[in-house]
C-alpha cells in the first residue's frame, strides 16, 4: 500500500481513528472495572465532591507526575484519566495525518493550512493552560 495515494491515506486515517478509539475505550473500561470493583456499592456523593477553592477541584490526578504516580499504584481514577488522554489524542492525530493526506494529493495550500491548525491546536491544548493570563 502506497501512502502517496490519497485513497490509501484515507484508509490509514480511518484505521488510526478506529484503533485509537478502541485503545482508549479499552483503557477506560479497565479503569471503570477496577473502580466498580472497589467502590460500586459506596455512596457516590463523596466522589462527586467539587471544591472551587482548590486545584484540582476533586480527588483525582491532573498533572503528569500525579498521573504517573497513580498509574504506578494501579489507581482506577488514574487509569481512566489515561484513557481520556488517549481519546483527546485522536483528533490531534487526525489533524497530523491529514497533513500527509494533503501532501499525497499534492495540495500544498492545504498542507500549510493543516500545519497551522495543528500548531494552533497544540498551543491551545498544551501551552495555554499553563500561562497565567489564560487562567492557568
Amino acid at each position: 500500500m502506497s501512502l502517496s495515494n490519497p485513497d490509501s491515506m484515507n484508509n490509514v486515517i480511518s484505521k488510526v481513528l478506529r484503533y485509537g478509539v478502541l485503545l482508549s475505550a479499552a483503557v477506560i473500561v479497565l479503569g471503570t472495572a477496577l473502580l466498580a470493583a472497589r467502590d460500586a456499592f459506596s455512596q457516590s456523593a463523596s466522589l462527586l465532591h467539587y471544591d472551587p477553592n482548590q486545584i484540582p477541584h476533586g480527588p483525582f490526578p491532573v498533572t503528569f507526575s500525579s498521573l504517573a504516580a497513580g498509574l504506578a499504584t494501579g489507581s482506577p481514577a488514574a487509569i481512566i484519566e489515561l484513557g481520556v488522554l488517549l481519546l483527546l489524542a485522536t483528533p490531534v492525530s487526525r489533524v497530523l495525518f491529514s497533513i500527509f493526506l494533503f501532501a499525497a494529493e499534492h495540495n500544498r495550500t492545504y498542507v500549510y493550512i493543516t500545519a497551522t491548525v495543528l500548531t494552533l491546536l497544540l498551543f491551545s491544548m498544551l501551552v495555554t493552560p499553563y500561562i497565567p493570563v489564560f487562567g492557568g
Binding site: 473500561v29 462527586l48 484540582p56 477541584h57 498533572t63 481512566i80 481520556v84 483527546l88 490531534v92
Partner: peptide
C-alpha cells in the same frame, strides 16, 4: 478538534472527574 483545543484547561483545573467521564465516554 475544537474541543481538544479547549480540553487542556478543563483537564488541568480538575473539571474532568473520572467517575463521571468514564461512563460518558464509553
Amino acid at each position: 478538534v475544537t474541543a481538544a483545543a479547549s480540553a487542556g484547561i478543563y483537564f488541568v483545573r480538575g473539571d474532568v472527574d473520572p467517575i463521571i467521564v468514564a461512563p460518558v465516554a464509553l
